[in-house]
Amino acid sequence: MRNISDIIEQHLKSILQQGDGSVEIQRSELADKFQCVPSQINYVISTRFTVEKGYLVESKRGGGGYIRIRKIEIIDNKRFYHMLMEAIGQSITSAACDNIIERLREEGIISPREMHMMKAATGRVISAVPVPVRDRLRADILRAMLTAIFIY
């Protein structure tokens, strides 16, 4: 059985697909619809609609406040590559790395097999490395793989 976060995520994604790639919601209205607390909506948006996953989130607080979610479309592979390199920076967490790899798969840039190989190379295998170095090593590996995908 799916949990409420999965249901809210699927609802928002279906609205995004039906529309023009963006949705504007009021947190309290969505919380009422799913009979949950507004912080549950915040959790879903902050964890499931991230830049790494291909979304841009804007919010305006207050009485007429809203949350706007837009799907970031890939127009140009070169720009996308540079955007990914910038997002990775000098270090990247395991979760953010997985999000980028999953987005590459969703966009059809890599195959499911390549996705699993990339996750294996950036996942638990580097857990033996001391924590301060781990995120930097993961970033180096991911940048090298992306360069191989986009440049060669």
Rank of each mutant, 00 (worst) to 15 (best):
R124V: 12
I149C: 05
R136C: 08
S5E: 05
L104F: 02
E107V: 00
M85F: 13
M118D: 11
H116A: 13
E114H: 03
G63D: 15
I67T: 11
V23T: 08
S46T: 14
I72H: 07
G89I: 08
I74Y: 13
Y81W: 09
H116W: 06
N3D: 01
S39D: 13
G21S: 03
R103H: 00
I7P: 00
I88A: 05
K78I: 14
P132W: 08
V51P: 09
E9Y: 04
K60F: 15
H116P: 01
E29Q: 07
I8F: 00
E52F: 08
I25Y: 01
V133M: 15
I69S: 13
D140F: 08
I100A: 02
A95M: 05
I67Y: 12
S91R: 02
R61C: 06
R143I: 12
R2D: 02
T147H: 14
L137E: 03
L142V: 02
G65R: 07
K119S: 10
S39Y: 10
S22W: 03
L30K: 05
R105E: 03
E114D: 14
P38S: 02
Y152Q: 10
A148G: 12
Q35R: 04
E24G: 11
N42S: 15
R138G: 12
I75T: 15
K71F: 13
S91N: 03
N3C: 06
N77C: 13
I8V: 00
R136F: 09
C36Q: 04
P130A: 14
V51E: 15
S46N: 14
Q10A: 01
I15E: 03
A120E: 10
R124Q: 08
L142I: 04
F34S: 13
L12E: 01
C97K: 01
I72Y: 06
A120I: 06
A96C: 06
Y66W: 11
E106I: 00
I110W: 00
R48K: 13
I149M: 05
M85P: 05
L56K: 11
S94L: 04
D76Q: 14
Q26W: 05
